[in-house]
Design a protein around this nucleic acid. Structure first.
Lengths: 208, 208
DNA sequence: TGTACATCAGTGAACGCGCGTTCACTGATGTAC
DNA sequence: TGTACATCAGTGAACGCGCGTTCACTGATGTAC
């Protein structure tokens, strides 16, 4: 990591490693503002270089964004691996497998919460400037809450598990939707998705 | 639904119900291109009106987007209610509760798949122009797959349930991440989220 | 070791784009008399 | 029923913004001799 790569003021005419510097600037932009903030002009500005200099190293703005996306994806994987590395070797196969799955999820979520901009960049989602969603129509959240209340009343859902159960069910469903729409499951065909949905809902029902 | 509200060519000087027409144009834009496509200029263009005419009805572009967002949220709720309405009345409380929860999820997912642009608009996510993510570093998907393989090998996960199990686990985890980062759980404090994560992972483990 | 020279990374200026937003305006509408 | 008039919804022109991208260029670098 050369300390001159991101400096706005250079003494040399040639930059040295402009591609890397632009990529790092792009990553920093993604960290702060998500994929929409990854802009050739801002990346070159931060690197102290003319806007068009970027074209020596990236074919287009899309090309830079793609490189940033790739770096973000690796960072997610690294976060998961770090969590996996904390698992001891003296566990039974069963305990080890459980711990691994839990570590995968923990690492993934930790990265999402620590680096939301990179997370969105990695998975193709962009920050929207949303305000508070107060409105008076029927609310998906309330409908879900009512269904869960019904399950509690029917004795299927133990009362102790009711508080917060919305978040669990909603997470599973919302997640599949996102993966299918914006994420890596875009290429999956309709039949496969159709087969997946009942399984997902069954998982929620059994596991909540 | 007046048939003249979205017509580009009017005979009257006054529009009639420009606010509604702009909102409908905005919804159509969101349907097609997500929240980022909801633009005052395009909405007025489609309504056959000068760009600044929008300011008689919306304080800003954000204001229009907010109105579209609200409409999209209602549409999600309607999709869920439509599914709920298909449940018979002759069910036991237990069966009825189960059916309701399933209907909630089905309606939500159906809307997401049918109207991805509106879904993203409703929940604060934007379409990114992502290409195929081919790269050579460690891949979150592969790490998850390996952990699941391990669970299968250990005999925790029955072999018949292994195929596609990635999607179930990933959905749950990805969904909570999205809700926390971009969605309605933004306001939730750290302790609450910390308490939620183990519960979510437990749900996956038990329910997969 | 010294010198001529080709390379090509970065420059400077400019382009067109669509966007949000502001300004002074105009003329159809509907009301008051 | 007819007429004067105030209202205010929509107009037309213009602004500044940041963006991606193209063009002809220049001059430091490293190589061939």
């Amino acid at each position: 990591m050369s300390n001159a790569t991101i400096r706005p003021f250079r003494t040399t005419y040639r930059h040295g490693d402009l591609r890397r510097a632009l990529l790092e600037a792009g990553i920093e932009l993604a960290r702060t503002g998500g994929p929409a903030a990854v802009t050739l002009r801002e990346a070159t500005r931060r690197t102290g270089v003319a806007p068009n200099a970027a074209y020596r190293h990236f074919a287009s703005q899309q090309d830079l964004l793609q490189a940033v996306r790739s770096a973000a994806l690796s960072a997610v994987a690294r976060s998961m691996q770090a969590e996996l590395a904390t698992i001891g070797f003296d566990l039974s196969p069963i305990a080890s497998a459980r711990a691994s799955l839990r570590a995968i999820g923990t690492g993934y979520l930790r990265f999402a919460r620590t680096e939301p901009g990179l997370f969105r960049t990695a998975f193709g989602t962009v920050r929207a400037p949303g305000q508070s969603p107060d409105h008076k129509d029927a609310n998906p959240y309330e409908l879900l809450g009512a269904a869960l209340d019904q399950m509690e009343a029917a004795g299927i859902l133990p009362a102790g598990r009711r508080p917060g159960a919305e978040y669990l069910a909603w997470s599973a469903v919302h997640g599949l939707a996102m993966l299918v729409i914006d994420g890596p499951l875009q290429a999956m065909n309709t039949q496969q998705i159709d087969a997946l949905i009942p399984r997902l809902l069954e998982m929620v029902e059994n596991g909540i």
